[in-house]
């Protein structure tokens, strides 16, 4: 049931300085640690612990989600396209899951 991250960006060929909007969604249970299974035993917490987005090596955004974030976490953010490069995204969870996605961003000539 493993499916890749779903990624949408408003433009892959922005003008320099253009604000790019990014949406990404993954399938993840976001188990809060509060719930009990049918025998009354707690279900082990398994939350997304970190998401980060970089353009090349430059950090654009990092996100530390908690138990209040919905299942199949949806992330939307914006950044200014100041250089061409690879938009890299990374997800980590409590159980050591590591997911990555990337997209090339190429500035349009002015």
């Amino acid at each position: 049931m493993s499916r890749p991250p779903r990624l949408w960006i408003s433009s892959a060929t922005p003008a320099k300085g253009e604000i790019i909007r990014v949406r990404v969604q993954i399938q993840h249970v976001m188990e809060s640690g509060f719930r009990l299974d049918w025998n009354g035993a707690p279900l082990e917490r398994n939350l997304l612990t970190r998401f980060e987005a970089r353009l090349n090596e430059t950090l654009l955004m990092e996100w530390e989600p908690g138990a209040s974030i919905s299942q199949n976490p949806y992330v939307e953010f914006a950044f200014a396209a100041r250089e061409s490069g690879t938009l890299r995204m990374l997800w980590l969870d409590d159980r050591g899951m590591r997911l990555e996605a990337e997209r090339e961003i190429i500035l349009s000539p002015a």
Binding site: L60, E62, G66, S68, S70, Y74, V75
Partner: peptide
């Protein structure tokens, strides 16, 4: 619920999520 950090390179602070 969550914490975001941005950098001087980000050029925006505009996020959406589901709680």
């Amino acid at each position: 619920a969550c914490r975001y950090r941005f950098s001087a390179a980000t050029g925006a602070a505009d996020v959406a999520l589901r709680l």
